[in-house]
Amino acid sequence: MDLKLLAVFDEVYKTRSVSRAGENLDMAQSSISIALGRLRRHFGDPLFVRTSEGMQPTPHATTLVAPIRQALQLLRGITRQQAAFEPSKAHRTFRICMTDISHLALLPALINRLRDVAPSINVEITHISAQTPKMLEAGEADLAVGFMPQLEAGFYQQKLFDQDFACVVRREHPRVHSRLTRNMFKRENHVVVTAAGTGHTLVEQELERLGVRRNVALRLPNFLGLGGLVASTDLMVTVPQRVAEALLRIADVKALPPPFELPVIAIKQHWHDRYQQDPANRWLRSVISDLFLE
């Protein structure tokens, strides 16, 4: 049993995919299949069964994953086979969980930077959800970027920037001009975007604390089409500042400061402590943090 077979087992277990395991290990799909065949013969078990949801582990594979990962960690430390990550030569896919704010504030700059320094690296984005902590822990995602106060024990974090809020209405709104007052805010009909990581719960809590009731005419699950919606109606929406800046670029709208102080949210990148010293993960974190220090 050599180290590469154990690495193949671990990567297929994490990704539930032969092709993704090959990408991450820089191995051909056929080589991954051959390695799986050797593993199955050695353990006398199918280990992974192809289903509609990918390569699912058998009960025996589930019992093997913890000792195999311990063995990998020990072997890599003893043999020093964990080489430094070379982004210019690497062929792999990073999987990042993001909120809508991160899509707007980070993704374009990240893609441009990767094309310059790591042209063979690809990125796969998934949305922040209740499964994000488990995905980070299992290695199914490399990073999570956004406003995620629920990530606590077992996770590292680094603040990228602070984010305040703005109120957005169409440019020629008949009642809201260059200044927004409390009475205007309470009088208008509002859109509320309920996507995770938008800070909308904090806004609602603060409005309740201030005794401000707003007329919520529409609730949306995400920011998709929000610019066109606001630009063609008299609705008002309160969104993080960077979302407001993106809406200003794509729609005929204007952004105004809220008529009262709202909480500031911290946008952070999060990773599991298993990957604190992983060279590839460390490199990706440094690229993302550098984008906000420039």
Rank of each mutant, 00 (worst) to 15 (best):
W271M: 10
R115C: 08
L74H: 06
V169K: 09
K268A: 07
P119K: 13
R50Q: 12
V287C: 03
S120W: 02
I128L: 13
M184A: 12
F185V: 03
R213K: 14
P133T: 05
V287R: 02
E172R: 12
F94K: 07
R285V: 01
Q241P: 00
K134C: 01
F147H: 13
R213N: 13
R38A: 14
R113C: 02
S30V: 15
F9K: 15
R182Q: 06
P46I: 00
E261Y: 10
G228W: 08
D142L: 02
V216F: 00
V239T: 09
V145M: 06
N122A: 14
D252G: 03
L293E: 14
V117T: 10
H91R: 13
T15A: 11
S17I: 07
P221T: 06
R80L: 07
F43A: 04
R40E: 13
S30I: 14
V203S: 03
R282T: 13
Y13K: 05
G44E: 09
P133E: 09
Y13D: 11
S120T: 04
A246P: 00
F292C: 07
L64D: 08
M135L: 15
A118P: 07
P46Q: 00
A141R: 09
F94S: 06
I34C: 04
V8F: 09
E23A: 09
